[in-house]
Write a protein that binds this DNA or RNA. Structure first.
Length: 212
DNA sequence: ATGACGATTTACT
DNA sequence: GTAAATCGTCATA
């Protein structure tokens, strides 16, 4: 069962934390079901947040979905080649969202591999934990693209969030967000949430967190 | 019409 | 650590 509206209609930092451990499900046109547990998220706080696409109240065709109800999908294209997927938080008119940065793949791994390999031939085989590591990789593995921008995650059969593993609540840590160095002091806010030491979390592997 | 710029990823020195 | 890939979007003119 997809999570209902009230799950999403909260502030983005709370939602970012609540999404950890939950299951993101993608159903392809041919009925194939792909899914993974959310292990890394980032909150974007709206007009006051220098790193948010809605900073200063900016509202354009690209970021229009951010202004929708909580539970709306915000998918955008960036760097000329990548898609990123956000879950809109808050209420209608509040341009706040949570970027989904990484999943632990649980269903449809073979299909995800094919979707990831489609772009370029690879020298090394892709480990399952690497399939959905990073916001753009995740979108490629789940075939999330522009056609899903603006859909209602509480109703759409193609993409939704459902109950995952509550046991994953234990090792949650907060860090600064990634890739927003231009955002001044907002770059330092602890708005990135992830499961500590999880192999599917993006960023450089460190010797210390490798095994844990 | 034009130019600067990414909520990234990958490869290479 | 640094750089390239690659192009839609938006502010400016």
């Amino acid at each position: 069962m997809p999570f209902p509206r009230r799950f999403f209609s909260t502030d983005p930092a709370t939602l970012a934390r609540a999404l950890l451990g939950q299951r993101l499900v993608r159903v392809l046109d041919d009925g194939t079901r792909l899914a993974g547990l959310i292990v890394e998220t980032e909150a974007y706080l709206g007009p006051r947040d220098r790193a948010a696409h809605s900073f200063g109240g900016r509202r354009t065709p690209r970021n229009e979905a951010m202004y929708g109800r909580g539970g709306t999908a915000y998918v955008y294209f960036t760097y000329g080649m990548h898609y990123c997927f956000n879950v809109v938080a808050g209420d209608e008119g509040e341009p706040v969202a949570v970027l989904i940065r990484a999943l632990e793949p649980t269903e449809g791994i073979e299909r995800m591999l094919a979707l990831r390999s489609g772009s370029r031939p690879r020298r090394k085989a892709l480990a399952p934990a690497a399939l959905c590591r990073g916001p753009a990789n995740l979108c490629q593995a789940l075939a999330i693209a522009r056609s899903l921008n603006g859909i209602d995650l509480t109703r759409d059969p193609r993409l939704f969030v459902e109950q995952g593993l509550s046991a994953h609540g234990a090792g949650v840590v907060r860090t600064p967000r990634i890739g927003i160095d231009y955002a001044g002091h907002w770059a330092k806010r602890l708005l990135r949430f992830h499961l500590h030491g999880h192999p599917a979390v993006s960023g450089r592997r460190s010797r210390a967190s490798k095994g844990a």
